[in-house]
């Protein structure tokens, strides 16, 4: 370990201890010293991990590595534990075995649903991958998952992504139409006006058609077809731009959440 790294590590450890002591002494509404120590440690450790992850913005460093490995290890173990207790103990055992329910102290559903034995059988087939000779058996379970997914998704996507999108585009291009004279005499850029309504519908209909043309792969995008395709990609890019700004604002609110934690819960320099 380099000398500079050692010094930084030492400083961080000292700051951690100082923060722990301070948060323990200022812990509100605790029943015992142990509770105060625990609360002080948890707040300090959460702040340390937040700063360790944020330190990646500067460069990779030992604190980031520590936070990363801790996060990965804890989350992987948590996912496995959750899968066991919620899927096997919570869902499977109450439907297939009164004995297992007794062992794990969960309530038996009252009747055996033998169809629920199919998923664990498929799970065991997947685990056959660990066997040097029986690895090919795991493909059966995979094929079942992929085939079932495709079959279930086809009607769902046809309804939501095809039919509803098409019927949603059946829009009149001339809204509240009473002739050109009326249109020009009442021309206004008001958001609720006729001109904006017509323009809006025109952009939706032409955007959808030209967007579809962009995703048409059976013909070279040249000439008029190419122009329509370019219009389609422009519409997509403008949409992406709007979406980008909207999402970034959402991310800023997440950052504000973490900064509020650091400033309020940890340092206590602002009131929540």
């Amino acid at each position: 370990m380099r000398k500079s790294t050692m010094i930084v590590t030492l400083v961080v450890v000292l700051l951690f201890i100082a923060s722990w002591i301070f948060k323990t002494m200022t812990a509100p509404e605790v029943d015992s010293t142990f509770d105060a120590l625990t609360q002080g440690f948890l707040v300090t450790f959460a702040a340390f991990l937040t700063l360790a992850i944020m330190s990646f913005l500067y460069q990779d460093n030992p604190f980031y590595k520590f936070a990363e490995h801790l996060y990965v290890g804890v989350s992987a173990a948590y996912a496995m534990t959750l899968g066991f207790w919620s899927t096997l103990v919570g869902n499977l055992f109450p439907r297939v075995s009164e004995t297992l329910c007794g062992w794990f102290q969960v309530e038996f559903s009252g009747q055996h649903d033998w169809q629920f034995l199919i998923p664990p059988i498929l799970g065991i087939l997947l685990l056959m991958r660990l066997s040097p000779k029986g690895g090919w058996i795991s493909r059966w379970a995979l094929a079942f998952i992929v085939g079932t997914t495709a079959g279930l998704n086809l009607p769902r996507f046809l309804r939501s992504d095809f039919i509803e999108q098409i019927s949603g585009t059946f829009l009149p291009l001339l809204v509240d139409w009473e002739g050109f004279g009326h249109f020009f005499s009442n021309l206004s850029l008001s958001a609720s006006g006729q001109f904006v309504a017509i323009l809006s519908n025109f952009v939706i209909v032409s955007g959808v058609i030209c967007g579809l043309i962009y995703f048409f792969f059976s013909k070279e995008h040249k000439g008029a077809f190419g122009s329509a395709s370019r219009y389609g990609i422009w519409i997509l890019m403008i949409t992406f731009g709007a979406s980008f700004g909207y999402t970034v604002m959402g991310r800023i609110s997440l950052l504000v959440g973490r900064l509020t934690f650091l400033m309020d819960d940890w340092l206590g320099i602002i009131s929540g």
Binding site: T169, F170, L173, L174, V175
Partner: peptide
């Protein structure tokens, strides 16, 4: 992929017909 392209043609034709009908009926 070619079959899906046919689906897109169906969608485009439907949108053109539907929009035309909606426009004539409304205006």
């Amino acid at each position: 992929l070619k079959g899906q392209d046919l689906g897109k043609v169906v969608a485009m034709v439907a949108i053109v017909l539907g929009t035309l009908a909606a426009t004539l009926a409304s205006a």
